[in-house]
Amino acid sequence: MGRSPVPPAGPRRGGPVGAAGHSGTPPLFHRVMDASLTEVRQALIDLRARFDGRVDSDALGRLELVLAEILNNIALHGAGTGESAAAARPGSVTVHLSVTSHGGGLACAVIDDGAPLPAECLVTADRMPAPEIAAMNAGGFGWYIIRDLTQSLFYFRENTLNVLCFHIPGPSAGRGGQVRAGVG
């Protein structure tokens, strides 16, 4: 675990990349952070500040939600199985987040050096339980939301790294985000 995936570049690369004075440049966002709920929150606030007014606001809302689900999942479970593992090793997982506007949508990559993503996260049944049952469970929505709002979602494990990439469609094409492979 101790090895860092990429040289630990100053974790707060908050400075605008391609922002000031480059209004024609597609906005980019890059952040290296500890996998903690508070770092995730700050990254999402900064992400919104970077993209607000420069990309479709609905797409930005969908992006923020998907990233919240992915990044919080890493913060809560990335250190290993069981909550005790995460609690015992706070901040032991590093996340690299990259977002760029692309083809009318937003292309994202999330790389972390935590425990492998369990396969069932990406392949669980497409259907939620009936709403009243889901409401009583009061959870289990995260991956459902991720799969519902993303396109071209793929994951691979490379040595010690989890690599998760996806696309958030823009306002026109493919809205609704339902993964209806091969339809239309």
């Binding site: 939600l65 709403p131 889901a134 409401a135």
Partner: peptide, 13 residues
């Protein structure tokens, strides 16, 4: 608000 409404609709809550 729109972002909150989205979560309720997506999950059918």
């Amino acid at each position: 608000t729109p972002n909150v409404d989205r979560v309720f609709r997506l999950t059918r809550m």
